[in-house]
């Protein structure tokens, strides 16, 4: 009975997600939703980095920018085919991730956050100042859109592409979480010394976490470049980095779905507050940041935690005992709120 309920709910959810763009008449709303999907990809990377591996990055916009500008410049100025330029953008972000991971070897997460801020700001400054290459503050225009069978991507096609990539991201993270790699991440997050005594190289684990989250941010950036068609340094400022961290935290750092929930949720939130009252235009962003603060203060474990607990209650079969298979599922909800590395 309960099992069937679960199946029905999953099917309804899937149907709604797939059907959504077909019934959405408002092109702008679909545009915002597409940005939400891009942010969800990026925020998932932060969930991986911070929630799984215990490393903080307040410079994620830097990786996002590297992916975006690399792909934009290669495809626009050098005629590189888009799929290839996206891949190169991702590679560049990964390389940047590797570089940023170096200070994490010796620094506590907290000091690390300052270094990552510096990284993000340096990238932003480079974009502004390398005008011949990036267009500086004037922006970079004429980025070719993605194409399918000769015609330009429509909003719906963007939606399905981003959704597919996001789904692949979540599935990958799910598999990683349940593999030796995921266990190594959690282990170094809990206790680096003990992890080392188990033969786990904390350095390698951190490098992997930074590279992975850098790759996702770079991918999100490259997708954004071709989706938007132009780039300005604006979306890559420090405050975007903090908004990204906000997404991951509001969604739930310790949840596989945290990045998805937070990324989409916090992208849609200001838009839903964009009410048609005179004089209100200036205030909806204010309300959005207030709501984010309230979430962090009053729901530090995030929406993902809330949702998963509610769903668990819904389809918990009475009297079921944990089997061996269940034993390997990480039960985050019971873990302490304090990460060893963050305190």
């Amino acid at each position: 009975m309960r099992k069937r309920l679960k199946l029905v709910m999953i099917l309804v959810f899937l149907g709604a997600v797939l059907y959504y763009p077909l019934m959405e008449e408002n092109e702008y709303r679909l545009f915002v939703m597409n940005r939400g999907l891009i942010h969800a990809i990026l925020a998932s990377g932060l969930v991986f980095l911070t929630g799984f591996a215990g490393q903080i990055s307040l410079g994620q916009a830097g990786f996002y920018a590297i992916g975006a500008y690399t792909s934009a410049i290669l495809s626009t100025s050098y005629g590189v085919p888009i799929p290839l330029s996206i891949i190169v953008g991702v590679i560049f972000s990964v390389v940047a991730g590797l570089v940023v991971s170096v200070p994490s070897f010796n620094l506590k997460a907290f000091f690390l956050s300052l270094v990552t801020i510096a990284f993000g700001l340096i990238v932003h400054r480079l974009i502004v100042n390398l005008q011949p290459l990036t267009g500086g503050t004037n922006g970079f225009f004429g980025i070719p859109p993605m194409r399918w069978a000769g015609s330009m991507f429509t909003s719906n096609m963007h939606y399905y592409l981003f959704l597919g990539i996001l789904a692949a991201t979540v599935v990958s993270m799910y598999h990683i979480k349940r593999s030796y790699l995921g266990r190594a991440m959690f282990a170094i997050n809990d206790d680096e010394t003990a992890a080392e005594s188990c033969g786990i190289s904390a350095r390698k684990a951190k490098v992997f976490a930074f590279a992975f989250s850098g790759a996702l941010a770079g991918l999100a950036g490259a997708l954004y470049a071709h989706f938007a068609g132009f780039l300005t340094p604006e979306p890559f400022v420090f405050f975007e980095s903090s908004r990204f961290v906000g997404m991951a935290v509001v969604g739930g750092l310790r949840h596989l779905w945290g990045g998805v929930i937070g990324g989409i949720g916090l992208t849609l939130l200001p838009e839903t507050l964009r009410l048609p009252y005179a004089g209100w235009e200036n205030y909806y962003l204010l309300l959005a940041s207030t709501i984010t603060i309230l979430f962090v203060v009053f729901l530090p474990r995030g929406l993902g935690d809330l949702a998963s607990k509610a769903l668990d209650r819904l389809w918990k079969v009475e009297g079921a005992t944990k089997t061996l298979k269940d034993a390997t599922v990480v039960d985050d909800s019971e873990a302490g709120a304090d990460d060893a590395s963050l305190t």
Binding site: T50, A109, V249, L286, T292, P300
Partner: peptide
């Protein structure tokens, strides 16, 4: 509420945005 350092980090980051937008 059992929030650790990270929560304070995020809350104060958002606070910066809040004051700026205000």
């Amino acid at each position: 509420r059992g929030g650790a350092r990270l929560e304070f980090v995020v809350a104060t980051l958002m606070l910066t945005v809040f004051w700026l937008t205000l």
